[in-house]
């Protein structure tokens, strides 16, 4: 498979999962949250300091439709992570292209 095709398919998969699939995710508490509730330390959690972020709790502020609100937050998150992690990888990579054995 050509590189361009591979990366386009991979990115589309990530965008679809975050933008569409996430709506169908289980809304039950995750393992840690559940255990915290069950064993009695859930109340020691503080209110998140970033809860006024426009994408807090994977919902977009000001967007009423829950499906659209969550999907937008997911797509924005995927984009942010792609740019930051990809940029970081480009910054620290070996220049010149050819790969050499590392271990």
């Amino acid at each position: 498979m050509r590189s361009r095709r591979f990366f386009v398919i991979g990115l589309l998969a990530a965008l679809l999962i975050a933008g569409v699939g996430s709506f169908y995710a289980s809304s039950h508490p995750d393992g840690l949250e559940f255990v915290a509730g069950e064993t009695g330390f859930l109340d020691s959690a503080d209110e998140p300091k970033t809860s006024d972020s426009p994408f807090a709790d994977y919902q977009t502020a000001g967007v009423e439709d829950e499906r659209l609100s969550g999907g937008l937050a997911g797509v924005v998150g995927v984009g942010l992570v792609l740019v930051l992690a990809g940029g970081l990888a480009y910054a620290v990579r070996r220049r010149g292209g050819s790969s050499e054995p590392t271990d």
Binding site: S3, F7, A85, G86, R93, G96, G97, S99
Partner: peptide, 14 residues
């Protein structure tokens, strides 16, 4: 990481 695998890191994180 090299020119070939750096985009992979971005994709994997996303």
């Amino acid at each position: 990481l090299d020119d070939r695998t750096a985009p992979m890191a971005g994709l994997v994180a996303a």
